[in-house]
Computed example of a mutant assay.
Amino acid sequence: MQYRIQLFAGMAEQLGESVITLDFPQETVTITDIRKKLNEQYSEAASQLQGSFFTNNKKLASPEELIHPSDTIKLLQSAPGMETVVSACGLFAITYDPIDADGVTSKVQDPSHGASLTFNGTTREYTQGQRTVLLEYEAYVPMAMNTMKQIGDEIAERWPSTRTAITHRLGTVRIGETSVVIAVSAAHRDTCYEASRHAIERLKQIVPIWKKEVWEDGSEWKGHQLGGWNPHGA
């Protein structure tokens, strides 16, 4: 039986293809079986495979989940080109266009709130002495949208009556350009500071967005700054 695995971003670049077909004698396999065979066939990508996650029909797949040949299996890295995607509530968005920070801030304005805070994440030129030319962002969009909303729900539960909006940019983001805007409003300023910090740290922990750092003499795909993506991170 043949099983098709879709690859994205750094993994596709590493292996030189976007789809891999694996052959198994049985009609059902587990994610563990798929991971083992990938490790055997692509030992040069072992370090990337170790920190990867699979989805089955757009849902996170557990190691022992049974997979059929007709299932849509993805090794989480990115999503294809798209227009701006906005959540049903309008507070969370992913876009390939430049981000309007004032527009994101306007989403959280509330006459009962006495404070609002907007965080702008931009591309810096130097990191540990190495000059960055540009960044390229990719995401697994359906899950990224869900986890950004999860962050907003966490903030609303921890700091009642707050409002949070997040917009993240994909594609090429050059030096000085904005990659993410987080806006928070609340009755008091101390709540805004705490909630905003929580939002950016959680975004790095659980939102499946990857960036490719392009330097003057090379490039490298990276996950967020806190390590491999953990969808169950606390």
Results as ranks from 00 to 15, higher is better:
Val214Trp: 08
Glu64Gly: 04
Pro111Asp: 15
Ile67Ala: 09
Tyr140Leu: 06
Pro208Lys: 06
Glu157Ser: 13
Val86Leu: 10
Glu65Pro: 04
Ser47Lys: 03
Asp102Ser: 13
Ala186Trp: 07
Glu136Arg: 04
Leu135Gln: 08
Glu13Asp: 14
Gly227Cys: 00
Thr127Tyr: 09
Val184Ile: 15
Asp100Leu: 08
Glu213Lys: 10
Thr123Val: 14
Lys222Tyr: 04
Ser43Tyr: 12
Gly218Glu: 03
Val214Cys: 10
Ser78Trp: 04
Thr172Ser: 04
Glu154Trp: 10
Met148Asp: 08
Gln50His: 03
Thr55Glu: 03
Val133Arg: 08
Leu38Lys: 05
Ile20Gly: 08
Glu213Thr: 11
Val133Ala: 04
Cys89His: 11
Gly228Ile: 05
Arg158His: 14
Thr172Asn: 03
Arg158Asp: 09
His198Thr: 09
His224Val: 04
Thr21Cys: 14
Ala195Gly: 13
Ser52Ile: 07
Gly218Asn: 03
Asn56Thr: 03
Thr162Val: 14
His168Ala: 11
Ser70Asn: 13
Gln109Gly: 06
Leu91Ser: 13
Gly81Ala: 15
Ala12His: 00
Ile34Ala: 04
Pro80Gly: 10
Gly129Ser: 08
Val141Cys: 15
Pro142Ala: 04
Thr162His: 11
Leu134Tyr: 01
Gly16Lys: 10
Ala46Gln: 14
Ala88Phe: 00
Arg131Gly: 02
Ile34Glu: 06
Ser106Met: 09
Val181Thr: 15
Glu138Val: 08
Ala156Arg: 10
Met82Phe: 11
Gly121Ile: 03
Arg35Ser: 02
Gln150Val: 00
Trp221Met: 01
Gly121Phe: 02
Ile31Glu: 06
Thr21Ile: 14
Arg35Lys: 06
Lys37Leu: 14
His232Ser: 13
Lys204Ala: 12
Ile200Trp: 14
Met143Val: 10
Lys222Thr: 06
Thr178Ser: 11
Ser106Val: 05
Ile5Gly: 03
His198Ser: 04
Thr21Gly: 12
Ile200Arg: 14
Glu201Tyr: 06
Asn120Arg: 15
Arg189Ile: 13
Met148Gln: 08
Lys149Gly: 02
Ser87Leu: 11
Ala46Met: 08
Ser161Ile: 11
Ser70Trp: 09
Thr132Met: 14
Gln50Asn: 02
Met1Phe: 05
Met143His: 12
Ala101Leu: 03
Ala183Gln: 11
Gly228Asn: 11
Asp190Val: 09
Ile73Thr: 02
Gln41Arg: 15
Tyr140His: 13
His224Pro: 11
Pro160Lys: 15
Thr84Arg: 10
Arg158Trp: 05
Ser62His: 07
Ile73Phe: 01
Arg169Val: 09
Ile94Gln: 05
His198Gln: 06
Ala144Gly: 05
Ile94Leu: 15
Ala61Gln: 02
Ala61Gly: 02
Lys204Gln: 14
Ala139Ile: 01
Gly51Tyr: 01
Met148Arg: 07
Cys89Ile: 09
Gln50Lys: 09
